[in-house]
Computed example of a mutant assay.
Amino acid sequence: MAIMIKTAQEIEKMRISGKALRQVHNAIAPHVVAGASTMDLEEIAVKKIAELGAIAAFKGYHGFPAALCTSVNNEVVHGMPNAKRILAEGDILSIDCGVIIDGYYSDAAVTYPIGKVSAETTKLLEVTKASLERAIEQCQVGGRLGDISAAVQELCEAEGFGVVREFVGHGIGRAMHEDPQVPNFGAAGKGPRLKAGMVLAIEPMINAGGPEVRVLKDGWTAVTIDGSYSAHFEHTVAITKDGPQVLTR
């Protein structure tokens, strides 16, 4: 496993990419409402990415057709924007997006409630987001990769939620996916040492029901096997001697 260590200058370039990505997410957020289509949100993202002089990291990646992954309700990840997919009260929507600026990638995801959602769904979103924050806290020089994974798994499973195994976080830099893989499950104290200059895309994908997923016939959209809702939050995080720096905050 060849884990790329970034220089301070490279991390600064990734911070610029991450800041642009946050602006894309901020542009989309007010439009995540009942009655909007997921294609409406895609069009907003494409326009904002162009305004920022960035490149949509997902579009064309292994043939993916869009700038956003828009995953609704029981869709876990890699949902595709569609003009016929209209958001309704009580839905949840994961928006995952990445951009490239000056050759450096950033990657971040947010899951939104559409209007009023159930108490269980609210808890799913809150716990998944909290698990990401807990994972980020583990991004300390001298720690182990498993510390990050265990932080997510322990919190989410203690609350009765299913931790997806098939999709994991990853290193990121001049490529979208670099070593190491960053699972959302595992044992603390195991795995590679965390070193200053590592940059990780940490992304809990957590199901209200069981952890099992399957991919639809479109070859992209992953859904929960039991039909339960799924939440997804992600940040790009640099490990530094001064602690974790969230580049997409």
Rank of each mutant, 00 (worst) to 15 (best):
Gly63Ile: 14
Gly63Leu: 12
Ala67Met: 03
Ala67Lys: 00
Leu68Thr: 01
Cys69Asp: 12
Ser71Val: 04
Ser71Ala: 04
Asn74Met: 10
Val77Ile: 15
His78Phe: 13
Asn82Leu: 02
Ala83Ile: 01
Lys84Met: 05
Arg85Met: 12
Ile86Asn: 05
Leu87Tyr: 06
Glu89Trp: 02
Glu89Ser: 12
Gly90Ile: 07
Ile92His: 08
Asp102Trp: 11
Gly103Glu: 02
Gly115Phe: 09
Ser118Tyr: 10
Ala119Pro: 07
Glu126His: 11
Glu126Pro: 00
Thr128Ser: 07
Ala135Gly: 15
Ala135Pro: 03
Glu137Met: 01
Cys139Asn: 03
Val141Gln: 07
Gly143Tyr: 07
Arg144Asn: 11
Leu145Glu: 04
Gly146Met: 14
Asp147Ser: 08
Gln153Ala: 03
Gln153Cys: 00
Glu154Ala: 08
Glu154Lys: 13
Leu155Val: 10
Leu155Ile: 13
Cys156Phe: 08
Glu157His: 05
Ala158Arg: 10
Phe161Val: 03
Val163Trp: 05
Val168Arg: 14
Gly171His: 01
Ile172Tyr: 13
Gly173Cys: 11
Ala175Ile: 01
Glu178Asn: 05
Pro180Lys: 08
Pro183Glu: 03
Asn184Ile: 13
Asn184Ala: 15
Ala188Arg: 15
Gly189His: 10
Gly189Lys: 11
Arg193Lys: 12
Lys195His: 13
Gly197Met: 01
Val199Cys: 08
